[in-house]
Design a protein around this nucleic acid. Sequence first.
RNA 1: GGCGCCAUAGCCAAGUGGUAAGGCAAAGGUCUGCAAAACCUUCAUUCCCCGGUUCGAAUCCGGGUGGCGCCUCCA
Length: 490
Amino acid sequence: MTPPSIRLFNTMTMQKELLEPAVPGEVGVYVCGPTTYSYIHIGNARTFTSFDVVVRYLRHRGMKVRYVRNYTDVDDKIIKAAAETGETAVELSARYVEIFREDARALHLLEPDVSPKVSEHIPEIIGIIQKLVDKGHAYASQGDVYFSVSSDPDYAKLSKRNLDDLCVGERVQPGEQKREPLDFALWKAAKPGEPAWESPWGPGRPGWHIECSAMSARYLGESFDIHGGALDLIFPHHENEIAQSESASGKPFAKYWMHCGFLDLEGAKMSKSLGNVVRLRDALGKVDPEALRFFFLSTHYRHPLSFTDKGLADAEARMEYFYETLRKVDERVAGKDFGKGPVHGEPHRFFTEFEAAMDDDFNTAGALGSLSGLFVLMNELADKPPVKDKPLVGRTLQALREDVRKASSVLGLFEDDPAQWLLRRRERAVRERGIDVAEVERLIGERTAARAAKDFAAADRVRATLKEKGVDIMDTPAGTTWKVAPAHGG
RNA sequence: GGCGCCAUAGCCAAGUGGUAAGGCAAAGGUCUGCAAAACCUUCAUUCCCCGGUUCGAAUCCGGGUGGCGCCUCCA
């Protein structure tokens, strides 16, 4: 089989490039993970979901992916937060790692192959700092160690900045012992009471950027394929990683740089200083996790995305359509054998389109569009009267269902049992709207009796009563079912 | 000030040289006792504006206008 031709936008070259891993068929991916000092927010969630799909798709295309996403568990913000809660930094950080893992599971994020923690890689970090000092790229100063930006002629090649324009002069904080304003800390001397590790420069802790250089080298090698994060990491974080890694190893660092766009709140930036940060956990209390995933994936990963009630409600309605369709299809064909033979039309054409969109820089929005045709066809076939249940229809539905399964594994969507998902969704809506299930069922019983007696006026009165309570009823060949009507006004 | 991104129907959103995907909403239809769901049909001669290149531009170039991001911890 010919190797898949996946193209991806590389921030380094600002162009879409063909993915050509150093070892054909094997891809190393490093994504900057969370700093574990609080709950992650929905912007973090979008970024991690985007890279989750990147990894899933590469695997779908037959690549062997080694996926590394770190935990930054040594950091000034953690120390500060721990001082406020009375925990040690280690305790607080461990607690938020667990919280992150719960959130990640709820969002159906794959577990990375390696999730290294900074605190467990101090020797590697000291090793790379020592190498930089030995090669003249870094210098120690009163217990701190700084990277000398002027020692790296390539500095700022990722962000394409002009060093002279970088607000020079405002960056030296009191107490810092830098030679030049742009230099940044590789190692910070410990102040009393702070977590510290022994080092050739005295007790201290790593600076922010060096961890990713050390841990990516340990698990993916000094040169690897894809490095990802959100846009705001381009400068200075990723820039500094490149400077450190390439200065230390003398080799090119990551080949492809992928950066995810921002999520905003109806046009307003989400930031801690504005106090409008939405935690993933809070969002998950209001919207189905898969609907949130669908919402993220319905816009291209590099584009800005507005987090709105309308967008979320649309995503949930869409998920319901998908799952209703799948339930109908599963009832019709699951576990049945329709034998070998021809199928109706070209059922796989939708999935071919899906892959073409994904091959083009992981265009999930386009891919989702091609899935629409697939679902329409499934509905059309599944609605054909069972008396005409020819093997042709069954085989075609099974072929389509199989393609949905493949898309599921790529997108992390509609992987649940459809009936279960729909039931859970109804149960949640029942709780939110305070609906009395026993009463609903009693009223439906009354209506069924009225219909049997051809008293349609009475039947319609029951329908109206239920509608007022927010319940829609559906008469099906298998009897009357009901669901909670979509909420109005978001 | 420097670097960079974005602008497509009422809304969301693909499309980066070959004649505007998809979804929501809306209108009509099929089905239904009535509905719901599903399906069908309709819904941008046009892609912020003005120039230019080209046989051909939403797509490329120049200039505007309007949003936004990074340059400080930030996904």
